[in-house]
Design a protein around this nucleic acid. Structure first.
Lengths: 113, 113
DNA sequence: CAGTATCCCAGTTGATACTG
DNA sequence: CAGTATCAACTGGGATACTG
């Protein structure tokens, strides 16, 4: 939906493409996870947790699951002991990176005015 | 901050330009408000509420205040009875519109796959 | 190692009534 | 008309302990 189509129609932002985008990347940690994945993939669960630092196991786990369900993150499990799981970005997630850059650029330009 | 600079540094997303952008537009209704303002400015409080539909007075009021504090929305009050207040976008907000379009475009392309 | 399960609190949002 | 005040409900996220 373009902006022009919004006029007089919006009842619930969740029903718009923007709402979809936000549902996919709007989580508190999702952007950080995507950024770090972009730079470090593939990466194991605990390595990712170390990179983020402040996040709890529970949050990292739930956010990764949602990202996987939304087709942004691939999860590869190695059947061995001790367990080993590697996370990486899907092609769909790669197409999102330029958009995220735009958000960052706007933030850089406008944070101090 | 570009993606490259994220590596090994992120502790709190709020401290990044992306975090700033989200703090400014991430509120539940802020994007809708900005979209509708872009199409209908200047617009009065109750007209805006009618356009959005589901929002409460309280939410519209608080979101507009935050947008104004962040320099995205202008508020013009006419000293008359009954009161009349018009809201419109600032230049800063106008620079945000192309970025929002990108988010929408990604949503359109990816909502069904 | 890579997670789950459980409990709980704090902040956000909603409903309703009221005001300058 | 353009809001504010108050209280209730919902929800996201954190702490901790446990498991295959």
């Amino acid at each position: 939906m373009s902006m022009a189509e919004y006029k007089g129609k919006v009842r619930n932002i969740q029903d718009t493409p923007f709402g979809y985008t936000m549902s996919v990347i709007g989580g508190k940690w999702k952007m950080v996870i995507i950024y770090l994945l972009a730079e470090n993939q593939p990466i194991r669960f605990n390595d990712l947790k170390r990179q983020i630092g402040a996040i709890t196991f529970k949050m990292l786990s739930s956010q990764l699951k949602e990202l996987e369900a939304d087709g942004l993150v691939k999860r590869k499990e190695y059947p061995q002991v001790p367990p080993k799981v590697e996370y990486s970005l899907t092609d769909k997630a790669e197409t999102l990176l330029p958009v995220l850059e735009k958000l960052c650029e706007w933030g850089v330009k406008n944070q101090n005015n």
